[in-house]
Design a protein around this nucleic acid. Sequence first.
DNA 1: ACCCAGGCGACGA
DNA 2: TCGTCGCATGGG
Length: 264
Amino acid sequence: MEYIIKNFSLYDTLFCGQCFRWEETEKNTFAGVVANKKIIIKQQGDKIIFDGDDNDKIIFNYFDLHKDYEEIKKQFSKDETLFKALQTAPGIRVLRQEPFETLISFIISQNNNIKRISGIIKRFCEIFGNKIEDDFYSFPSPNAIKDITQEDLKPLRSGFREKYILDAIKKVSSGEINLDDINFLSYQDSKETLMKIKGVGPKVADCVLLYGYNKLQAFPMDVWMKRAMKVLFDNKIPPCASEYAGIAQQYIFHYARTLNIKDK
DNA sequence: ACCCAGGCGACGA
DNA sequence: TCGTCGCATGGG
């Protein structure tokens, strides 16, 4: 299958820090796992190419290809600084990832770097997931790992995050927190619900809501965003971005890292 | 050796 | 409610 998607970058979308499991196997060809299936997808100019006709829906949903980003970016362009930010990586789209995977991934992300985050998540899938084919493993379901102990998590080398991962697994697999129900809660209520999990604070919750639930009010504030918002936006989200704050966050985050904004 | 990484919880004032 | 500190691990 192939589709024409204008102003889209697979590379920037998959490596801007919102997901951790994709690899670029050759130039502009990417391999990953979505919906428990191995997906190979490549980009040639405006064309997105992948195999398996039945992967259609999975890919459209995952990359949120129905959403009109041209209209959103047009709105963002009313702010001069935000326009500069989105120009550095205009092909980024916010993914629709699986909530449980997003939750565990961003618990692991705290006080950590992207390379090591990826390694821990990879080991998590290899140890607790199912082999799909070759070196590709599913992300385990909460129920499949409901009985594991903190000792079982040692091989991940995730350090102090072990107890946080465990608490997330327990609260989700027991039904104490229902990840499906989050969809139907308001932004505030869903955030408070996620923050009942140990190791989930405002920033991790926002990442889960944005990348796992496509709740676009979420505006994750990590160290990069705090510096960027202060230096570039006087700590105020531009009014033209308020409706799609989470998408604006992606461009600002990328811009901050490109400029390498540090404290002075 | 030292510092930091897409933060958070515990603790004290 | 707010600031500060320790936290596991690994790369620069």
